[in-house]
Nucleic acid binder design. Structure first.
Length: 431
RNA sequence: GGAAGGGUGGCAGAGUGGUCGAAUGCACCGGUCUUGAAAACCGGCAGAGGCGCAAGUCUCUCGUGGGUUCGAAUCCCACCCCUUCCGCCA
């Protein structure tokens, strides 16, 4: 959520900066109209309230003095405008609701360093690490590799649940677990993150806090409850972990808070029907190790660089080629002010594919969550929130299978993961 | 699921219809004292919002939402959450 003051004072500037998001159109006119009505209605309402409060105080005084007559005449005065007050109050509440809805639907302002652009085409490559390996045999994708090993099984997943799910077995299932463990150990042991275990079901308020609601309900899986409320399956650990600080005031000397959390993530993938239907690139359920930082506004951009570096470390340790791109304004998520995507090389697709997305949300989520710290004047001030995948576990598994495949159909285990595989150096080729 | 108790400021904890946005303590900020610090003492200190150049002033908020009333932290209703006991349970 943007600061409503900013919209009041610099509406045109805000509209212009938002237009960088692939031509996003802020409804300037209706905001102006709402704001005008709000202003008038609010001052009317408040002055009536002030009158009522003053008269009520006098009634109290009169009653104390046992002056029944004075009290009654004062009550008559209040009653004269109490209907008007009630009416205005109701209108003002409705108007406030409208304002709130509008505000909740406005995306974050792109940071000044974010390149302009409408789509993926306009993202800017920042750096590359590693060289895509050249293979002396014909390269297979993870589906062929995993299925021929008999350890990557989409057919049973379809029977059990449906499309966009997978069953892993044997060494590949273990490799999947090893990857997550490795990541958790590096981030908690070397990068100073506190490991978190969190709920996988969250309430609507949490999703509103991080920005998934109210706008993106169709991307979520909902679980109905006995009353008419519902829980939602988390689309990312960002939601439960960031919401730890919702409605809290954190002592400044504890910033930044650094959390790492491994969870499954659930996404309906509404609107991506034809996309990535083969393999486990895009699943309704996937595991992810998420990094979250709650930072002081002064250094949140430095934190973004660090956090992105922490995610990169994993790929370096696994010796997987990757590149980092700065997302252009039009390709960024709703809540982000700046985002780096890390893309890993997938030989099976001969392409770099997203494996991590690291963002600074500045105060956008913090404002929705009322997450604050006490600044050096002793006043509560909004924190900045950041997060990034460190990394997506399923896609890392794909990258390992494809980059470490052997001519005989087996897969080498990267050195960093071998301790997590009981010393196993390779997944044996099928006979 | 049954029974009882309870949700008040950063924390602890008073307050059961009338200057209560709220005593007191702790924490925090500023000052006096001190070589410095601690202690002591003095002062300040909830949040959000409106109007105003400012000084200031007004409104809202005591778990949430409704209701009663001229007036609600306080009374009524519903819901949520927490604690304890019983039952059930990985």
């Amino acid at each position: 959520m943007l600061d409503v003051q900013l919209l009041r004072n610099e509406l045109d500037v805000v509209a212009r900066r938002l237009a960088a998001r692939g031509g996003y159109q802020l409804d300037v006119e209706s905001f102006r109209k709402l704001e005008e009505r709000r202003k008038a209605l609010q001052s009317d309402t408040e002055s009536l309230q002030a009158q009522r409060n003053a008269l009520s105080r006098q009634i109290g005084a009169a009653k104390r003095d046992k002056d029944q007559q004075a009290a009654e005449s004062l009550m008559v005065q209040v009653n004269a405008f109490s209907d008007e007050l009630k009416n205005k109050q109701e209108k003002l509440d409705a108007l406030r609701g409208e304002m709130e809805d509008l505000l909740l639907s406005v995306p974050n302002l792109p940071h000044g360093s974010v390149p302009a652009g409408a789509s993926e085409q306009d993202n800017v490559e920042l750096k590359r690490f590693g060289e895509p390996r050249s293979f002396s045999f014909s390269v297979r994708d993870h589906v062929d590799i995993g299925e021929s090993l008999g350890q990557l099984d989409f057919e049973h997943a379809v029977k059990i649940t449906g499309s966009r799910f997978v069953v892993l077995t044997g060494a590949i299932a273990r490799l999947h677990r090893a990857i997550a463990q490795f990541m958790l150990d590096v981030h908690s042991g070397e990068h100073g993150y506190t490991e978190i275990y969190s709920p996988y079901l969250v309430n609507a308020e949490s999703l509103r806090g991080t920005g998934q609601l109210p706008k993106f309900e169709e991307d979520l899986f909902a679980v109905p409850r006995a009353d008419d409320s519902r829980f939602y399956l988390i689309p990312t650990a960002e939601v439960p972990v960031t919401n730890i600080v919702r409605d809290e005031i954190i002592p400044a000397d504890r910033l930044p808070l650094k959390f790492v959390c491994h969870t499954p993530c659930f996404r309906s993938e509404a609107g991506s029907y034809g996309k990535d239907t083969r393999g486990m690139i895009r699943q309704h359920q996937f595991d992810k190790v998420e990094l979250v930082q709650i930072a002081h506004p002064e250094n949140s951009y430095q934190v973004l660089e660090e956090l992105t570096g922490h995610a990169e470390t994993i790929l370096r340790r696994l010796d997987l080629p990757y590149r980092v791109v700065t997302l252009c304004a039009g390709d960024m998520g709703f809540s982000a002010a700046k985002t780096y995507d890390i893309e890993v090389w997938l030989p099976g697709q001969e392409a770099y594919r997203e494996i991590s997305s690291c963002s600074n949300f500045e105060s956008f989520q913090a404002r929705r969550m009322r997450a604050r710290f006490r600044n050096d004047k002793g006043k509560p001030q909004l924190v900045h929130t950041l997060n990034g995948s460190g990394l997506a576990v399923g896609r890392t598994l794909i990258a390992v299978l494809e980059n470490y495949q052997r001519a005989d159909g087996g897969v080498d285990i990267p050195g960093a993961l071998q301790p997590y595989m009981g010393g196993l150096k390779a997944i044996a080729s099928p006979r």
